[in-house]
Write a protein that binds this DNA or RNA. Structure first.
Length: 509
RNA sequence: GCCAGAGUAGCUCAGUGGUAGAGCAGGGGACUCAUAAGCCCUUGGUCGGCAGUUCAAUCCUGCCCUCUGGCACCA
């Protein structure tokens, strides 16, 4: 069985999850479930990034122990994963011993190898912000902004990783592997960035400035810089499982350069490990057409929103609305449009009328199809076309179009019902009419079984509910499930609650 | 400023070197199994602008305009 390993970025537990976090996890989950449906042995990793100065500061500001602070915030992300029905195989936290050990081993290895050296770093330091400043932080007149307080030039000793010496290798790797970054234009911008010489990466922080981190194994007076620590999670989680390298590291566009596009492949290469096979870089969500911002209230709480509606509706919307790699806009109005027209009216209603008619006209048992005439031929011909296009689009991460295609098949099934008008056939006592009626009911049920199977990665719980109504087991994989046939003949259909109930009032509230 | 992306029907987006497409919204109609859902028909665009290549460009090339994002650590 082909194995497939993908990861999400691990979330920094300095604040609560927002819509972007939810999206990335759902996107990765849809990919993971798609690959499982295709018969692959998938390992899906997500987790939290828990070290660093901001976290230490936030914990102090809140007056709680740092460990307690990260435990509490990490719990929110674990809950989000559960709420979104993610199929992750593991959830790694960078404060776990299993991770810390891998980081320390990696640092020691690089140190022994001579890829890490100690040097003096000179710069302007703001004690109030506890950070080094850069020239771009200066105001036009050369002074430092008030928020930094007193700024002094200091010299500090730190450890540096020889990033620059691997720059030629990275450039070669990017040129030789066009699929290393998706979408393609991100690879170009990465190469652009590499036109300039890299600086070596400072990978330590003195303990008297920052103690919330992983101590350097070769100098306990320092802790590890948070990015160096965090990136290794993708490896530390599966080191013992032998699953490295990842097929995809799924990340947001903001952390491609320099973290995932430069630090990460070079770190791995220096350690003698292969880089990930590819980085999948997604875009950002705006809210109501504007940048999301908690302070202005232009914000959607993914937890509250999901609970208010329905997990699968949320998952469907996120994947249906955004083109992977591009930005998209989230608004309650647009959500409602998709929810009503595609989920409730098209899919949900098809499920409902199928079960109703089978109950009413065939005592709840799916009949065998007996005739194949123009309406059947048309729908049956559309199926393999839909399925094949859906697969190709999914493989290319074009989920927004793939889902539209699947929905078009659902629409075609609704149209088929109108052509056959089973409610009229039910009043036709002739043998031919009755045969057409039985055929119609069989055809609808089969089309629903097939069409819904495509929707499983995006809406697993919903699809399994539909399948339960069709007396089918939960879907395990697509193999053998996507060919038109008559396996539902004789199936005693069960009841299914309204899948996507309409909101009480359609006006926005 | 530099780099990248986007610019196609009211909205969200597909798409192709050869007389422009879908969904939603809008208009009309027939039906009733169904979540007043679904189905059929339909209004609507000089495919950002200019020039070029070509028998032919929305799709190729060049220039320009507008919007968005990034420019070193926030998905």
């Amino acid at each position: 069985m082909k194995s497939f390993y993908l990861t999400t970025a691990i979330d920094y537990v300095n604040g609560s999850p927002h819509l972007g976090h939810a999206y990335e996890k759902v996107l990765a989950d849809v990919i993971a479930r798609t690959k499982r449906m295709q018969g692959m042995d998938v390992f899906y990793l997500t987790g939290t990034d828990e070290h660093g100065q901001k976290i230490q500061q936030s914990a102090r500001a809140k007056g709680v122990a740092t460990q307690q602070f990260v435990d509490e915030t990490a719990a929110e992300f674990v809950q989000l994963a559960q709420l979104l029905n993610l199929s992750n195989n593991d959830f790694i936290r960078t404060t776990e011993p299993r991770h810390k050990q891998v980081v320390r081993d990696a640092l020691q290895q690089l140190f022994d190898k001579g890829d890490i050296y100690q040097a003096e770093y000179q710069g302007f330091y703001s004690a109030r912000q506890e950070q080094f400043l850069q020239e771009k932080d200066r105001q036009p007149d050369g002074s430092w902004p008030e928020i930094f307080g007193e700024v002094v030039e200091i010299t500090e000793s730190n450890y540096f990783f020889k990033l620059r010496s691997y720059q030629p290798w990275l450039i070669e790797h990017l040129k030789a592997n066009e699929q290393f970054v998706f979408p393609a234009h991100r690879r170009k911008s990465l190469l652009e960035f590499l036109n300039e010489p890299l600086n070596d990466l400072c990978i330590s922080r003195p303990k008297d400035r920052l103690e919330w981190g992983i101590p350097l194994p070769f100098d306990e007076n320092y802790v590890t810089y948070v990015w160096f620590d965090a990136l290794l999670n993708y490896y530390s989680a599966v080191k013992e499982l032998g699953r490295w390298p990842a097929d995809y590291n799924v990340i947001g566009k903001d952390i491609l350069i320099p973290a995932h596009g430069i630090y990460w492949p070079i770190m791995l290469h220096a350690l003698g490990l292969p880089p990930p096979k590819a980085l999948l870089v997604h875009g950002w969500w705006s809210i109501n057409g504007a940048k999301m911002s908690k302070s202005t209230g232009n914000y959607v709480d993914p937890v509250a929103f999901t609970q208010q509606w329905n997990v699968d509706a949320m998952r469907y919307f996120l994947v249906r609305e955004m083109t992977v790699g591009m930005d998209a806009d989230f608004s309650p109005e647009q959500f409602l449009v998709r929810y009503n027209s595609e989920l409730a009216n098209n899919l949900g209603n098809l499920v409902n009328r199928t079960l109703n008619m089978t109950t009413r006209f065939a005592a709840g048992v799916v009949p065998a199809a007996e005739v194949t005439e123009e309406p059947e031929r048309e729908l049956q011909a559309l199926w393999p076309k839909t399925r094949d296009e859906f697969m190709a689009l999914s493989d290319g991460f074009q989920f927004h179009v793939a889902l539209e295609r699947a929905m078009q098949f659902i629409t075609a099934t609704n149209a088929y019902i109108e052509k056959r008008a089973p409610w009229k056939l039910a009043k036709d006592p002739s043998p031919a009419g009755q045969a057409q009626l039985r055929t119609t009911l069989a055809t609808i049920a089969e089309a629903l079984r097939l069409g819904s199977a495509l929707l499983w990665p995006a809406m697993p719980a919903t699809v399994d509910k539909i399948r339960s109504g069709l007396a089918q087991p939960a879907l395990a994989q697509w193999e053998g499930e996507l060919e038109w046939g008559n396996r539902l003949s004789g199936a005693k259909l069960g009841a299914v609650d309204i899948l996507f109930p309409k909101p009480a009032t359609e006006k926005k509230g």
